[in-house]
Design a protein around this nucleic acid. Sequence first.
RNA 1: UCCUCGGUAGCUCAAUUGGCAGAGCGGGUGGCUGUUAACCACUAGGUUGGGGGUUCAAGUCCCUCCCGGGGAGCCA
Length: 430
Amino acid sequence: MTQTYISDIAAQEGQDVELRGWIYNFRSSGKLKFLQLRDGTGVIQCVMSKKNVPEASWEVGEKLTQETSIIVHGTVNKDDRAPSGYELWVSDVELVGESEDYPISPKEHGDAFLLDHRHLWLRSSRQHAIMRVRHNVIKAIRDFFDDRGFINLDAPIFTPNAAEGTSTLFETEYFGDKAYLSQSGQLYMEPGCAALGKVYCFGPTFRAEKSKTRKHLTEFWMLEPEVAFMDLDGCMELGEDLICFIIERILERCQMELKTLERDVSKLEAVKTPFPRIHYQEACDLLVKKGTDFTPGDDFGAPDEEALSEGYDSPVIIHRFPTKIKAFYMKCEADDPETSLSCDFIAPEGFGEIIGGSQREDNAEILERKIREHDLPREAFQWYLDVRKYGSFPHSGFGLGLERTISWICGVRHVRECIPFPRLMHRLKP
RNA sequence: UCCUCGGUAGCUCAAUUGGCAGAGCGGGUGGCUGUUAACCACUAGGUUGGGGGUUCAAGUCCCUCCCGGGGAGCCA
């Protein structure tokens, strides 16, 4: 008999089917057993009556523990008493693999314990829902750019130098030389867009900063599109279109998962273009008015971000930050070198910055001066300067943090639940 | 690096002023034909993170080290 998946069970009402999976939970009333079986696609209640199964099957039933793997045959039955609305009337059960002392009981657990058992934690319904949303966000991102004629041009992970010269890098040995794990693919996307017009990279990036907050991972996934002849306005439009596309896709395909996560879906349905755009100076005035202990001229802290996004359903775009608090490669206003053509997208509900972008400096002389001012080694950036030497052109791009985006969409407070195996400052296992 | 909170049974937590170290879940045994985090009875389970100190007496007070959570800085 061929295997049926629980996600397809509704179409099999009244049929005899074979399910293969793991015991999620079970209850017994003497001669009647209720098994919650999961197979990765869903969970279904299996009802086993002593008088309706062979003795060998009943004995298997007596030995079941949490996460025992089994093959079960039975008839699909619609019943409102079953948690999913359908249940399986069991005709026989076959033991596949025993499970002794499964550590994650159906009661609550602490974060540290769950993270230590991340490989098992992924079997629980909440994690399951988050991983399904993650999958769909990734698919939506790729579809969005594919439909717009972008080329996926991935950047290297081993890099010879610091991309922005600010963040701490993970150093590794490279045949007797030093190499660093990439903290951004952006510098590689700039020559990329000169070659192919519209490109994006999408892969893991690494930050060795000693940040222990719910918004930080040492290894996270970042999407970085870069477009030739696109200015800052185009960059902000691309970002908001992308986010709306992702949200619409998730609302369309992940209603079950959002329900499992108890996400207030109306918050996501309210996300609409155009997103509010606030000039940095205007944001400073707002913060002073709101009374956060913010110093105008500085970058925003987490409480400032939350104050700025307050009252908006869509992410808020803050644009034109002071040049001195932004990366060296960002272009300045033509008539105001103190102001950079930059933008940050701050998600609603306190989920923080999800996009950082800018128009890039396309003037070779200005860029060389900035590299000097930031004390960066010019030789290391020769190839990057070549983008300006051979047919320079205006161009822009941004970076979107995948896990932060998922965290917002799922309403999950901590990014560590938004990646299968999180890497944190104090955690490299499992 | 700094601030802050914490570490007690496999897990989540309690333990009054310093006075016999406990509960729920999970495990084990038995019972129950419609359970929904099932329920009922019984049962096993402890170097209270490590070391040192004060005291008749320390989970509790002091010193020190280790480990972890939240946050700051930095960033997506």
